[in-house]
Amino acid sequence: MSIESLTRGLRAELENGGLRGSFLVRDLHSGHELGIAPDVWYPIASLIKVPLAAATLERIRIGELDGSTTVEVRPGRITTPGPTGLSRFHHPARVALDDLLYLSTSISDGTAADALFDLTSPEEVTRLLRQWELHGITARHRMSDLTDTPAERLEPTEVSLAHTLAITAGTAGNGHPVSQLDVTRANAGSARALVDLLQALWIPSGIPRSIGTRVRELMANNLLRQRLAPEFVSDASTWASKTGTLLNLRHEIGVVEHADGRAFGIAALTESRVAAANQPEADALMAWVARTLRDQLRRG
């Protein structure tokens, strides 16, 4: 089967499953890659926590911050489904920066991430990405903005209305009246840019080696493994990743490392046309598409 036939068939499967997606799989050592619309920009939701972790670690490395410093974090008191960790606390807590990095990256705690954004602004995160020659990801806002969407303003029984708005109100240029879904106002990036970031964290690059080592560890400890992990975890491979979810958006980026030494960076960014919050079939479909692309690339 030709590459064109393969990707055309995968696009059709996504369409039949109610998804539009942007995928890229890259052999991190050879640079060979295979994808579907990898240069389309998406709001990236919690995926921004990976650049945030790298930026925070850079400031610790150069002595602007101390990882052992504790900060008082106000409780998130969030009760809607999804948020984790400090975001659901009812009382203030004192947490060290090193531990905030774990909470933010490994369990996707938005309140922990905002405590880090208090110290390293979205603008500074973007500046450091550019310093490392990573140009396709832009940080613009804190994570608390992601808990102020139509989904939080409606009753739980009306959540489908929020998803319907997310699905139907976008423009052809990826603009949206919901600011968190507008690529010109949201934290945004493309599948290619996110794989570039993974490659810079895994392979010697402008990002200092100590930062790459720590971020890889945080991603390997990711507790949210319902999306791509089932297709990539085995006794002969490891999977380190980060998910991102917002309304009808379902994303994941990660690296699968095989016992034979090969490593593949993977980005899967999708938006659903089905007005429902829980769609395990969508998670399974995007994982299967990513696995199919990886298998094809691995065969050479």
Rank of each mutant, 00 (worst) to 15 (best):
V40M: 05
G189Y: 02
A220M: 13
G35D: 03
P81S: 06
W202R: 10
G110A: 14
R77C: 14
R59F: 08
G63R: 10
E271S: 12
A275E: 06
R8N: 15
L297H: 06
Q226G: 15
T7E: 04
A54G: 11
R209W: 14
R8M: 13
T157H: 13
W239K: 05
V274E: 07
S46R: 04
E252L: 04
R192A: 13
S241E: 12
A263L: 10
R209C: 05
P122L: 06
G18V: 09
A220K: 07
V215G: 03
V178I: 15
L269G: 04
Q199P: 01
G206Q: 07
V73Y: 01
S144C: 09
L285S: 02
A166D: 09
F232M: 04
R209S: 15
L10T: 05
G265H: 10
G21P: 09
P81N: 08
V255D: 10
P92W: 07
H141S: 09
K49D: 08
Q296D: 00
F232P: 07
I3G: 00
L6A: 12
P156Q: 11
V255P: 10
A162Q: 03
L198V: 00
E124S: 13
F117R: 08
A290Q: 01
T147D: 14
I266V: 14
R26T: 13
D283S: 06
L249V: 02
S234D: 01
T213V: 08
W288I: 00
G170L: 02
A275R: 01
R214I: 11
A284L: 02
A200T: 02
R273V: 04
N174Q: 15
V50P: 11
A229P: 04
E231R: 13
E4W: 15
L34T: 03
L65V: 12
E217Q: 13
V40N: 01
V125L: 10
T56G: 03
E13L: 15
R26C: 06
T149G: 11
G261M: 05
D260E: 08
L14G: 14
L246N: 08
V183I: 15
L223V: 12
N222P: 05
G67W: 00
D283P: 00
A193W: 02
G173D: 15
F117W: 06
P150Y: 08
A193G: 08
L101Q: 08
G35M: 01
A236I: 08
W288S: 13
D99G: 03
T138C: 09
S205L: 03
R61W: 09
A53E: 10
E13T: 15
I62K: 11
V274G: 00
S234L: 03
L181C: 09
A240C: 07
S106A: 15
L28H: 08
Y42T: 03
W202C: 04
T270E: 10
D109C: 11
L197T: 05
P177L: 14
A200N: 02
P280Q: 03
L218V: 06
L165P: 00
